[in-house]
Write a protein that binds this DNA or RNA. Sequence first.
DNA 1: TCGTAATAATGAAACGATTCAAGTAATCGA
DNA 2: TCGATTACTTGAATCGTTTCATTATTACGA
Lengths: 362, 362
Amino acid sequence: MSGVHHQGPACQRPMAQQWRNMNRTASIKDVANQARVAVGTVSNVLNYPDRVSQRTKDRVLAAIEELGFIRNDAARQLRAGHSRTIGLIVPDVGNPFYTSMARAAETAAVLQGSAVLLGDSSQDAGRESNYIDLFQEQRVQGLLISPVGDVTDRLQALRDRGIPSVLVDRSADASSFSSVSVDDDAGGYLAARHLLDTGRRRLAFVGGPVSIQQVADRLHGARRAVAENPDASLEVLDSDGQTVLAGRRVGNDLVGRGPQVLPDGIFCANDLLALGVMQSLAMTHTYRIPEDTALIGYDDIDFAESAVVPLSSIRQPTEALGRTAIELLAEELETGSSAHRSVIFTPELVVRHSTSRTIFGS
Amino acid sequence: MSGVHHQGPACQRPMAQQWRNMNRTASIKDVANQARVAVGTVSNVLNYPDRVSQRTKDRVLAAIEELGFIRNDAARQLRAGHSRTIGLIVPDVGNPFYTSMARAAETAAVLQGSAVLLGDSSQDAGRESNYIDLFQEQRVQGLLISPVGDVTDRLQALRDRGIPSVLVDRSADASSFSSVSVDDDAGGYLAARHLLDTGRRRLAFVGGPVSIQQVADRLHGARRAVAENPDASLEVLDSDGQTVLAGRRVGNDLVGRGPQVLPDGIFCANDLLALGVMQSLAMTHTYRIPEDTALIGYDDIDFAESAVVPLSSIRQPTEALGRTAIELLAEELETGSSAHRSVIFTPELVVRHSTSRTIFGS
DNA sequence: TCGTAATAATGAAACGATTCAAGTAATCGA
DNA sequence: TCGATTACTTGAATCGTTTCATTATTACGA
């Protein structure tokens, strides 16, 4: 726009400057000209203020102010070879568990001077891979990932290129990657054990594709608990997805069942699923929680407490997860990613009304 | 690891190559060498495949594959002058309303070939400003922002530099910016009108600092409704913050009141606050919802439906908001941000049990 | 066989910051 | 006043792409 503009005599004096302000955003060179110093000096003012005398520093800062100069990050990181950015890939930003963790990670990252790029893989291996591509093109410093598909090869390749990864909410043999996770097997055990302890025997596990490690581990833990009671059984209900909606679908199926085949204790792989199941049961008024069937979720998101029937859950330390993930990544960056560490947190049972003991037979 | 490696005769043949793989990530130049073509040709293969003959294209692609070449985005955007990224600043990623919108925006952006950088200002004008700085350094294509502080000046400056902004969830006079929003005044009216229609007269509005536009508008709408009933009153309870926790604090205050001074209808500026209030009331068992006081929220997040007492709310079209915001931004980018548009959606009342009519005097 | 298009391929220049070896100015002790 | 430090400043080289004016190659009709 406004490309034609004769150099007539009507032009105002500070024209060149005006042009610059309008057209292009000022570069370090423009600042150098304005302040009548060399570009290197401007750079020093920005990066090593001690190396510059007060007098010139003032001049340069004034010029920066006047031109409204903003560093071009692309140029910086081209020179530096890497960005000041950390990639974070989570399976579902709609899940408060992940947003909570992401927030903690972001806070920790900002403290150490990095920004966090957040990607939502939506439980989709393809999207996940796309994000890895994107982050690789961006030359992120490192990657935090709560993987959905099988990404070990890709992460290995990244690491060979000097981009370390930390697995989040997923344990790894420390030989290949650092990781920070919560003991899902123990959590699954806790949940099922609690249902058994309150008298339930016909348990059901509701969980997305078992190909997801977390789901598999939680199920495994539950199986372990159930195996301790010979008269107990565990049915597995596959939910496609880990959302409230998916939970509602499973709930609708359950509602159609007769009381004899209804599980008397339901363990959902996360709170979203549990709330979905709860919605179905509550809406149809066919069965009551916890009288007809107990319900326990996983993650202990904020909304579990304020659910129709306050939801029992397994609490994970989201803040600690996010913070530690960043710390581990920082370690890898310093040590040159030679050694890896795995931090495993322990989950915690939170009992609420959805599993309270009832006057119960067997 | 493996830093020392004498050039003894035991070395394998493709050593130079091996070094390259280990050390540096391959550049377009390396690819050019490997494929025995000029750098420009490689670039053409990547950007204008039609300009290159099949033969050389094959050679280049093979080289890319072999070296594991990954474009360096920093270099690209240094040359291009801008990134392929859109900045999005929201006040609270813990609020499902915003994540939902962000997701919609992200989806729409990916379709048009851009990535979205998500920033959480945490309702803090300082953080908000920091994100604007960051995005400006990153030379984002454009900015979607749900502003907390007064950012008009900054956005104006950005626009002058060719970076357009779209205000999200906040209307603007179309003279300066495009915006996409929901009529908050109408929403506030809807909510208060509904409480009045179901017999409530002593209303309370719970909302964060009124300095936030959305809060102010919703309150204004509520006032408008209340003014229509001479015997109705509206009390304003300031919550510091818009979170579940803030709501719980307000709720605890309410619980301490005698029944005469307890509002019989509470309108919270968003669902998080409402759920917090609900938690307090439910935990102490002092007052019941909706018998002693009705409760209505705003946003209609997924969790409203599965609350202890299913929460009435005002629904906003989050998907449409996010999608439209990206569309408006795309328009600005095409037209050179000359003209601006404001899209205003209409909110919708969703009635659930938390406001159901009770056997009630006047 | 030659001239003329069309088609491919080339490689230098530019983008904007950082780095660093080299140069200049100021300071100080003798 | 000189030489030696120290304190600042300079500006060319560099990072990895894309662009584009040239040059090389090929194809085709006369």
